[in-house]
């Protein structure tokens, strides 16, 4: 056998698979106690009752909803921005500015997350409290979403906006790649038909709507898993409400806050591994959906 290379390479590949497998197995195994004891109410009920010796009860509904809520806000805000950014970079920006913008987008994608957190805590939270939440509550207080009196900058909304900023480069990368790979002839053909630039862009955007869908799905997955930046601004309290002006929890910030003291309690480690399993389940389901869509529509992109 001259080909010694294959076993070496294969063992590296196998090792990665092994780690991934171990991760999934461990999480599942560790979540069994809480899931078998509480069943579905683990995710449908809210409460974080820790007690040494006494009854423990963990329900992560509030955190789960917080994750979904912040991710939804993030995607809703990031979508128009990343579509515009893609169009602007490909279609409108002069060459020089385009290079700068592309650099800035890549930089946003890779910037250490803790810097986002520090910035969110220092600038974004207070800014949103003063210039968004208070005015909205003041003028549209009758509307259920804004009826809560804003009291702090550490809220679901702040986490959502910060996440939107963090996933924008990621979504932009996907949309931009698709948009810029539309053949020239289409564009020229459209102008030849006498369309305005806006009309042409709208038609072209319709051609990449599958990529936009993939971007939404994968952006959602990204937002759901982000931990450090979110736990710095989300407020870290358990409560269910439709008001985005309230402090809340996300699953990842719940883990960041509680894992350090979990092993004091009998059931809490299991509850946190269970939360992690569910978080991973969400991300995975979203990723699988996104990748499946991407494959179906043969969309390619690079981070």
């Amino acid at each position: 056998m001259r080909d010694w290379l294959r076993p070496v390479l294969a063992s590296a590949a196998l090792l990665i698979l092994l780690v991934l497998g171990a991760m999934i197995l461990f999480l599942t195994y560790k979540s069994v106690p809480v899931l078998s004891r509480e069943g579905l109410s683990f995710i449908l009920d809210s409460g974080w009752i820790a007690s040494e010796g006494g009854e423990e009860y963990y329900g992560i509904a509030a955190a789960l909803l917080g994750t979904l809520y912040t991710s939804a806000i993030a995607v809703a805000l990031a979508l128009p921005v990343s579509v515009s950014l893609s169009v602007f970079v490909v279609e409108m920006a002069p060459r020089k500015i385009r290079t700068v913008l592309e650099g800035a987008i890549l930089m946003m994608a890779l910037l250490p997350t803790v810097l986002y957190g520090l910035w969110g805590l220092t600038y974004l939270g207070p800014f949103l409290l003063r210039y968004v939440m208070c005015p909205l509550h003041g003028s549209l207080g009758w509307f259920p979403l804004f009826s809560e009196e804003p009291k702090t900058g550490n809220t679901i909304l702040t986490a959502g906006v910060l996440l939107a900023i963090m996933i924008t480069p990621y979504m932009t990368a996907i949309i931009k790649d698709a948009y810029s790979s539309i053949p020239r002839e289409y564009r020229e053909g459209l102008y030849a038909l006498g369309t305005t630039r806006a009309e042409a862009i709208l038609v072209l955007l319709r051609m990449v709507k599958s990529s936009i869908a993939v971007a939404v799905v994968l952006g959602l997955g990204r937002a759901a898993g982000e931990t450090v930046a979110v736990s710095m601004v989300v407020g870290n309290t358990m409560g269910i409400s439709i008001s985005p002006f309230r402090p809340g929890y996300t699953i990842s910030s719940l883990i960041a806050n509680q894992f350090g003291n979990a092993f004091l309690y009998r059931l809490m480690p299991s509850a946190l591994y269970g939360s992690a399993l569910i978080l991973m389940g969400i991300s995975t389901a979203i990723a699988v959906l996104g990748l499946w869509l991407a494959r179906r529509w043969s969309i390619k992109w690079r981070i």
């Binding site: 269910i240 002006f245 309230r246 402090p247 806050n257």
Partner: peptide, 11 residues
Amino acid sequence: VDELGRGLGGQ
């Protein structure tokens, strides 16, 4: 108070 939206948790 957390359930009323008037609580805030710090580490």
